[in-house]
Design a protein around this nucleic acid. Sequence first.
DNA 1: CTCTCCATTTCATCATGTGAAATCACGTGC
DNA 2: GCACGTGATTTCACATGATGAAATGGAGAG
Lengths: 254, 254
Amino acid sequence: MSIANTFDKGLKLLELFTYERTSLTLREVSEMSGLSKPTALRLLNTLEVNGYLTRDKGKAYCLGLKFLELGNFVAERLDVRAAALPHMDQLLFMVDQAVNLVIRDGLDAVYIEKRETAHPVRMYTRVGRRAPLYSGACPRALIAFLPEKEREDLIDKLTIEPYMETTPKDKAELRERIAQERAQGYTFSRGELHDGTAALGVPIRDYTRRVVASLSISGPQSSFVEDKHPYFLKALQKAAADISADLGYTRGRG
Amino acid sequence: MSIANTFDKGLKLLELFTYERTSLTLREVSEMSGLSKPTALRLLNTLEVNGYLTRDKGKAYCLGLKFLELGNFVAERLDVRAAALPHMDQLLFMVDQAVNLVIRDGLDAVYIEKRETAHPVRMYTRVGRRAPLYSGACPRALIAFLPEKEREDLIDKLTIEPYMETTPKDKAELRERIAQERAQGYTFSRGELHDGTAALGVPIRDYTRRVVASLSISGPQSSFVEDKHPYFLKALQKAAADISADLGYTRGRG
DNA sequence: CTCTCCATTTCATCATGTGAAATCACGTGC
DNA sequence: GCACGTGATTTCACATGATGAAATGGAGAG
């Protein structure tokens, strides 16, 4: 597979912009990318002309509004997301905790939608964010409820890195954890993606009965107390069932 | 200003994907772009390797999840948006009509956030969508409430194209319309962006007292009946005032 | 099994990207 | 108001990397 060198270099520049580093000057881009200033400039110019970058009052570049547009095309293409949105709003209203929707992309889980409480303490899960499949209630719900063969094939391909205290630390522990979660019908995590947060996750299925996404509610452990779990879980499962139904999933056989 | 030719060609390929055309084959890309197949392929490969494109079950390319991620970085950077979100949710709850948030980018209005009703009849405003500043209640609120000098400078630069029946058809009409809207404190449109829809818009200001965004509610004209306007308007103005206050706007002088 | 339609690879040609160094532009201190 | 410094931009000679016609590969239909 051959790729276009210059094009590749240019695209890589976009990776320099992160949630924390929202704007970069030519010098910074040049230094961070290892490209000479003229080269970096030409590439940045090209991005700017095409609307992928804008410049703030100074001369610093930031990601342009075009990404909003294209990001939205992607979002709108995702059927699960469209089906889930109203139910996520409803769920947020009922539990007053952050609500997340995740799909699988290769060996990653990708957050494709979220709804947040207006509380001062926010969960900061971002749309587009990636996480390992084994870490966190929502990601893990994507593998836990797959048919055995697929599930094992997937776990085989994973590389498990110790992530947080409470994250499964090897495949044996992951399998054990998943087996239990499968038995109880939902996934649970404490502090697997961020310290001090907890989450409950359940799968979403479409008309083929395959798990196509997972839905979770998460919040700071302080507000996520044990005795609320049954209520949370009920609301969560109801929402997931409604979304699945909207996607044509039927419970019975055949 | 020099740009990188190959990079530019590659970026232009992304423009081929629209809301309607969500997936394209190599042949289509090659034909639509005028590039030879090998060239198109190399560019597409490059985009794919970097996560900007994925391929569906067939061989067709679609925009990748990376755009979700980058689109979200952009969204999170927009302070108005963060401030507006909770109030938009609240407003949606109160009026049960689509709620839109728009900022100005050059001579365009850009929709940066929306909240929609669960009704079967939806407004299809998309995040990232651009509209001319003179067309629609929300865009027009962005110019209507600017200080005179800025407003006139901006109107001078506009090119007014007949858009819809009810859209101002020249600058004179636009000025007249704006003057009236400014006097009444809000903008109103019927069928300016889509047939059969109506909208009410108001400005949002930050601590510098400049108009930084506008907020609107919109819906099918059938549900947007005259006698609800006072209620809609009150809720809308309250939400906009709250958002402005969150951005440090103070009403009094000095 | 063959035909056909695309996707993909090859390769000789030459357009384009490249970076060191020169220049420009703007802000800051004296 | 002038000199200095920092960082953005332009120049230009060179060679790397892009290009497309044509050949090859591969998957699905008849």
